[in-house]
């Protein structure tokens, strides 16, 4: 954050922001005290955690996964730990309790 700020002559007129979605540069992970951990073998790929996350921090990846019981899935749900704020909605809403909220230790 100590980078030199641009002068008023260097910024676009009218405070226009030209880069869409640029808050991605700002990681919100430090807000978190609890970390969601998805148990991939238990997850039934229902998409519910992905749908309800307020911080788009559940990623839906085209990554195949085979469970211990040999069930094959084409998608994997993973947490984006850069943006997850640790609200716990995903764990609360998961119908099969496949998400644990564990204490962050730094």
């Amino acid at each position: 954050m100590s980078a030199k700020l641009p002068s008023w002559k260097e910024v676009p007129v009218g405070a226009v922001i030209l880069e869409p979605g640029s808050t991605r540069r700002y990681k919100t992970h430090e807000w978190r005290t609890l970390r969601p951990v998805i148990k991939q073998d238990k997850c039934i790929r229902c998409r519910i955690c992905w749908m309800y996350c307020p911080d788009s921090a559940i990623l839906e990846l085209d990554k195949p996964y085979v469970t211990a019981a040999s069930r094959k899935y084409e998608v994997t749900y993973d947490v984006d730990y850069d943006y997850c704020k640790g609200c716990g909605i995903c764990a609360q809403e998961c119908p099969v309790k496949a998400i644990d909220m564990v204490l962050e230790v730094r």
Partner: peptide
């Protein structure tokens, strides 16, 4: 739920509170 587009149009890194309901609304 299967019909919801995967592509995000509302970027994370916003400063809405943990668990904000309005953030879920804006995302969709």
């Amino acid at each position: 739920i299967k019909d919801i587009p995967r592509e995000e149009r509302f970027a994370p890194g916003h400063r809405m509170c943990q668990g904000c309901g309005a953030a879920i609304l804006m995302r969709h």
